[in-house]
Design a protein around this nucleic acid. Sequence first.
DNA 1: TCTTTATCCTATTAAACCGATAGGCAAACA
DNA 2: TGTTTGCCTATCGGTTTAATAGGATAAAGA
Lengths: 136, 136
Amino acid sequence: MLSSKTKYGIKAMTFMAKQESKIPVQIATIAKHENISQKYLESILLTLRKAGFLGSKKGKNGGYYLFKNPEDIKMTDVMRVLEGPIALVPCVSLNFYEKCADCPDENTCAVHNLMLEVRDNTLTIFNNKSLADIIS
Amino acid sequence: MLSSKTKYGIKAMTFMAKQESKIPVQIATIAKHENISQKYLESILLTLRKAGFLGSKKGKNGGYYLFKNPEDIKMTDVMRVLEGPIALVPCVSLNFYEKCADCPDENTCAVHNLMLEVRDNTLTIFNNKSLADIIS
DNA sequence: TCTTTATCCTATTAAACCGATAGGCAAACA
DNA sequence: TGTTTGCCTATCGGTTTAATAGGATAAAGA
């Protein structure tokens, strides 16, 4: 299951992507429009900014804005920042790999091989979707 | 991420599927062979039995055995019992559907539609894999 | 029948995680 | 200089997870 952090993060980014002008959008505006706790959203947007997806502006008429064009923001990258690994098991993760303590041989592990297939499929989807692709 | 309950459960089932004869396998045997805490595995196998995947026999020479042929055990069903929803968001789940509190319209929700695609893909994989398919 | 061997079952625990909140600081701008 | 906004850290309550404890129950065999 996806954390609501991820859900909120993506929703916020799509909201910014839908804006016509490039002027900053305030946290409060997004929070109200997407029904998200403002304080919680604050911390999520901070994460996204530090990850390089968003820019920010302080003070009056400040807010957040997309750093790149929606077409250039891959969902794979967004998912990895917000949710962490895309794989269902650490031993098939590309970016968060970890060996299973209990498993002597990955190559003959049924779980490993099954989840490898799932990961490949999911990754293909996220790799081929940009932020621009998912706004309807 | 997959819970280790699911991982252990699948490993235990593949272990039983690999047995040549149909005589019961004891929890201790599986636990030792797969490096799983015996007590914890006990509760997992109990769940699997109650879900109709396993049969059991008490007393001496007792243990657990597969109720059906490995070919007839779909991974979709195993996953749903052990892990719960296959979908990443409740609002795209077939068996565990739940409406998002914050979302006014699912059809225009970017997260919803993206995760719908992921769910379809993952489901296809699990639907086409039996326990027999995943043992190497 | 008695003992051993195994599953059955409920309750409990410790740790981790998650969503959310609190509250002050820092910068921008009018 | 005051107001508005994001910045940042700390903390909280609740839930889930992985694992453990301990006894009840049933079967097999001596």
